[in-house]
Amino acid sequence: MSGEFTPVAVVTGGSRGIGRAVSLMLAERGYAVCLSYVSDAGSAQAVVDAITAKGGRAVAVRSDVGIEADVLALFEAADRLGTVKALVNNAGIVDVAARVDEMGVARLQRMMTTNIVGSILCAREAVRRMSTRHGGTGGGIVNLSSVAARLGGPGQYVDYAASKGAIDSFTLGLAREVAGEGIRVNAVSPGIIDTEIHASGGEPDRVARLGPGQPMGRAGTAAEVAAPVVWLLSDEAAYVTGANLDVSGAR
């Protein structure tokens, strides 16, 4: 597939963890992939190289989703690849464990800007391209939420949990808003997944510590989250919208 009819997937935070797994899996299914990263250019390029080595098309764009200009640049890069048909709002951050009475405004603003505002900005740009109301031909959006939204994250990251609760509400509202415009909007809510995000939150041993205590006796893998994401974007999920798929191993 080439030119203007190439289906393009935008994957935010696509250089590592779940985003990397999603990018590789979507490329295998014929998408050109436009992935964003913030600081790890080497990891982002490695994903691009892995895709192109198998004959696919991909580009990595340095983009902080909490900055509108960066989001616009990300989607402009995606437009150069072809027609945007999928968005995976994967970019998100955690912070070190803290109680609410220990949290400062800077932490809260950073958390909400990246996890909530960033996802909404990216969805806005996707809708402008996909919606039949705007001359598009439809598409799919999958937002990465978390089981933290229903567990609350007490004593660790109530702010992160709250940001994912907002993603749950946003997913349902946007799904109903654009259901008649050819766009399906869903979410996945991972549990304990073996990725680098735990180290960024100051707990590099979190998977080893909590994994064995999960109902399935282990943490999940990035690929085990990516597969439901890709399914939600496929024609097999043609009548699925407004859903939030629990991928927590019954946590």
Rank of each mutant, 00 (worst) to 15 (best):
Gly13Ser: 12
Gly13Cys: 10
Val22Ala: 06
Leu24Glu: 15
Met25Leu: 15
Glu28Ala: 13
Glu28Pro: 04
Arg29Glu: 14
Asp40Ile: 10
Val48Tyr: 05
Val48Asn: 04
Ala50Leu: 11
Thr52Arg: 13
Thr52Gly: 02
Gly56Thr: 09
Arg57Leu: 08
Ala69Pro: 02
Leu72Pro: 00
Leu72Gln: 13
Leu74Arg: 09
Ala78Lys: 12
Arg80Ser: 14
Leu81Met: 14
Thr83Asp: 12
Ala86Asp: 11
Val94Pro: 00
Asp95His: 13
Ala97Val: 05
Arg99Gln: 12
Glu102Arg: 09
Val105Arg: 14
Leu108Met: 14
Thr113Arg: 14
Thr114His: 05
Ile116His: 03
Val117Asp: 10
Arg128Lys: 15
Thr132Ile: 06
His134Arg: 11
Gln156Trp: 07
Tyr160Trp: 07
Gly165Ser: 10
Asp168Leu: 02
Ser169Ala: 14
Leu172Thr: 09
Leu172Val: 14
Ala175Thr: 07
Glu177Met: 04
Val178Trp: 03
Val185Tyr: 03
Asn186Phe: 04
Ala187Val: 00
Gly191His: 04
Ala199Gly: 05
Asp205Gly: 08
Ala208Leu: 09
Leu210Ile: 06
Gln214Gly: 06
Pro215Asn: 04
Ala219Trp: 06
Val225Met: 05
Ala226Pro: 00
Ala227Glu: 15
Ser234Asn: 06
Val247Met: 02
Val247Pro: 03
